[in-house]
Nucleic acid binder design. Structure first.
Length: 464
RNA sequence: GGCUGGAUGGCAGAAUGGCUAUGCAGCGGAUUGCAAAUCCGUGGAUCUCGGUUCGACUCCGGGUCCAGCCUCCA
């Protein structure tokens, strides 16, 4: 039975879908004005695995995964002006880049990927409903605000109350607001800014209302899972609840899932701190699955410390798994869900997506596979197939083992041909029992981060 | 100031009221021309102080330290 830690209640709860057998999940995606960094990679990968696992449990056709794109907001406008670039061109450029990065990381595309600018009617309707219900008002400056005091449950997700918020407020209070905690639903356009027509004048939506409108449109007023990074819990998700429940008058989301931060030197990786690493830069030095392994080797709610050392370690660990799959053709067999390994794997995943524990099962399988390879080829092939099936749920071990182990040719490094050439020379030296020469060649390769393994079938190589 | 969450071996990182996590690194052995890979074996941990208990790393309370949120942020 799947248990999910629900940020709303602060405990693990049994997952029961609203509509039996069907799951609806919405995850806050990117605001597209820059390249995605490793923090974004974590959201992409974590919810990709949750999506994969839900599909495994409920069937592909019974899971609807929505991940939105925010393609209009202040930062986008600012960046477009800064670049002297048209907003549409800017956002499309970074949407394409995001897709490239996500695809590279083996992240499955969501079923629906709504964009804020394509949901303007829904956004405006929702704001109008809130005004009609007396939960929103237009300020003197023309902006429309949500009146937080009208929503009695405000703060239930982030466990904050209005008094605490006000006393700790670090923001300058906008004069037009009736209460400092009120937040903007519709913002008037300044001269030169992009705008949409609305009953309140030309303007654009606030960030929070976009997600309320898009999730309602794609999944309805009440759905199962809403996810995102921990930093969205407040105010973004809190405000979504206020808007959506204020509008519908009933519960918005049953399970809230928040993933932890990526840290650098024990500090949150973020754009404001400037300590972020762009996915595409990291991909120059590390294979995509190494990044996935690195992310999934910690529980999704724990902090994740980014460092080259940790990525190197991830690579070494993943290589060990791949190593066991070398020289073995996995049997053409489906996943045996009754095997002890599969049961342990599913048990781990059922326990709030405990991927580190699930990975440890893969290692146990890998060790048995190594033993089996020399004793029982047929059994080994069956086991290899099982490993691949389970790893697939995590999006790992999807590559050809040899290709993975030999990947990573950096600039200035030896080419595959040069390596094979040196190995041939060394084979001759070995045949001549000229150990000094064969060791010299091996040292040359090691210096270039090429590791050799002599096997009965010949010499094999991989990149460190 | 208010509110969250966390502190596990050299490092990364799970679990658990008494029983091997796992990985990387280390050590011993097998194997190898020597290595590597692999196999077999092995050392090493639960921030601190109290309490509950036959027994706590695990539950409770105090403390210390760390991170996050209260502004945009995945």
């Amino acid at each position: 039975m799947l248990q999910i830690y629900n940020s709303l209640s602060g405990k693990k709860e049994q997952f029961i879908p609203i509509e039996p057998g069907k799951v609806k999940m919405y995850v806050c995606g990117m605001t597209v004005y820059d390249y995605c960094h490793i923090g974004h990679a974590r959201v992409l990968v974590v919810f990709d695995v949750i999506n994969r696992y839900l599909r495994k449990l409920y069937g592909d056709e019974n899971v609807t995964y929505v991940r939105n794109i925010t393609d209009i907001d202040d930062k986008i406008i600012a960046r477009a002006i800064e670049n002297g670039e048209d907003i549409g061109t800017l956002t499309q450029r970074f949407i394409d880049a995001m897709h490239e990065d996500a695809d590279a990381l083996g992240v499955m595309r969501p079923d629906i990927e709504p964009r804020a600018t394509e949901h303007m009617d829904n956004i405006i309707n929702m704001i109008q409903t809130l005004i009609d219900k007396g939960m929103a008002y237009q300020g003197d400056n023309g902006d429309v605000y949500y009146q937080v005091s009208q929503f009695k449950d405000y703060g239930k997700l982030s466990k904050k109350n209005l008094e605490d918020l006000q006393s700790g407020s670090r923001v300058e209070v906008e004069q037009a607001k009736r209460d400092p905690a009120d937040f903007v639903l519709w913002k008037m356009a300044k001269p030169g800014e992009p705008f949409w027509e609305s009953p309140w004048g030309q303007g654009r939506p606030g960030w929070h209302i976009e997600c309320s409108a898009m999730s309602k449109q794609c999944l309805g007023e009440h759905f199962d899972i809403h996810g995102g990074g921990l930093d969205l819990k407040f105010p973004h998700h809190e405000n979504e609840i206020a808007q959506s429940e204020g509008c519908s008058g009933h519960k918005f989301v049953n399970y809230w899932i928040h993933n932890g931060f990526v840290r650098v030197d024990d500090e949150k990786m973020s754009k404001s701190l400037g300590n972020f690493f762009i996915i595409r830069d990291v991909l120059k030095n590390y294979a995509p699955e190494v990044i996935r392994y690195f992310i999934l080797n910690s529980h999704y709610r724990s902090p994740l410390n980014y460092s080259d050392e940790n990525l190197d370690r991830a690579k070494a660990s993943l290589s060990t798994l791949y190593q066991s799959l070398l020289d073995i053709e996995p049997a053409d067999a489906p996943l045996d869900e009754n095997s002890d390994y599969a049961k342990r794997f599913f048990q781990a995943m059922d326990d709030d997506f405990n991927t580190p524990k699930a990975i440890s099962v893969l290692f146990d399988m890998s060790h048995e596979l190594n033993r089996l390879k020399n004793s029982d080829k047929a059994q080994a092939q069956k086991l290899a197939a099982q490993i691949k099936h389970l790893a697939h749920i995590l999006g790992l071990l999807e590559k050809d083992p040899q290709a993975f182990l030999q990947s990573g040719a950096g600039e200035g490094g030896l080419s595959d041909d040069e390596i094979n050439d040196l190995i041939a020379q060394r084979a001759q030296a070995k045949a001549d029992k000229n150990w000094a020469e064969s060791d010299r060649i091996r040292d040359v390769l090691v210096a270039a981060d090429i590791l050799l393994e002599d096997t009965p079938e010949g010499t094999r190589w991989r990149r460190k």
